[in-house]
Amino acid sequence: MSNSTIEERCNFETQRLTVGSWTAQILEGNSELNFAEKVIEILSPNVTKALPDGWQDITTINHAQEWISEREKESHFVTIQLSSINEIIGFVFLYETDAENEYHDLRFGYLLSERVWGKGLGTELIDGLIKWCKKQGDIKSISGGVETDNIASINVLEKTGFSVSTVDKKRKGMVFYEYQFDTLC
């Protein structure tokens, strides 16, 4: 990968979405306080119900700032905005794995505010993410886990060309999907 981080590199637009660095949000006029308030809004109980404890009950500015700090330490994360109104509606989390032959595997997760569910934005987002990965030229696969009862996310992954890669036997009800890119290894 280039010398810039995934977070710095991961920016793209789709028909209705703009994806880019969360830190750029703060630099472009959204204060840290406004960003923390948006985190609280997005991380509703329905959005986080299948996620680990550190993702639950984010209801105060302090909790939101701690959550942001933890995400920054463990992953590269970017914001998802509705382009028409320039409003943050979710996040994508990217995790780099070791590279073989200069090609990388990425793990990812994403969250969308429940108020935008059912509008096709998940499919649009993941389609855009796939196109971004292809354009990078050094990513050989991208994979993510989903709860087996999260039919909407499963449909998004299958509709955009992902296939089942593994089932997590340690954690019942979790399945992993993967998208392989053509690389010249």
Rank of each mutant, 00 (worst) to 15 (best):
K135V: 07
H63I: 07
Y95F: 15
L111R: 04
K140D: 04
K140H: 11
V146I: 12
K134R: 15
H76F: 10
D127S: 15
G90S: 02
G90M: 01
W67Q: 07
L112M: 04
G54Y: 15
T60I: 03
S83H: 00
I139H: 00
Y95E: 10
T148D: 11
E96K: 10
E96D: 09
L111V: 12
T59F: 12
G137F: 04
I58G: 08
G54M: 10
Q65M: 11
A64M: 02
K119I: 10
K135F: 06
N46L: 14
V47R: 06
S83P: 02
V47W: 00
L106H: 00
V78N: 13
S113A: 14
L112P: 01
F91Q: 07
F91H: 13
S44G: 05
C133M: 10
R107A: 08
G144D: 05
E100P: 04
C133G: 02
I126D: 09
R71A: 14
V92H: 01
E72Q: 11
E124V: 11
D57L: 11
S75F: 09
G90H: 05
Y95P: 04
G122H: 00
G137A: 08
Y95T: 06
W55G: 09
E87I: 07
T60C: 04
S75G: 08
E87T: 11
V116Q: 05
E102M: 11
Q65R: 14
F108A: 05
I139N: 03
V146C: 06
K73P: 02
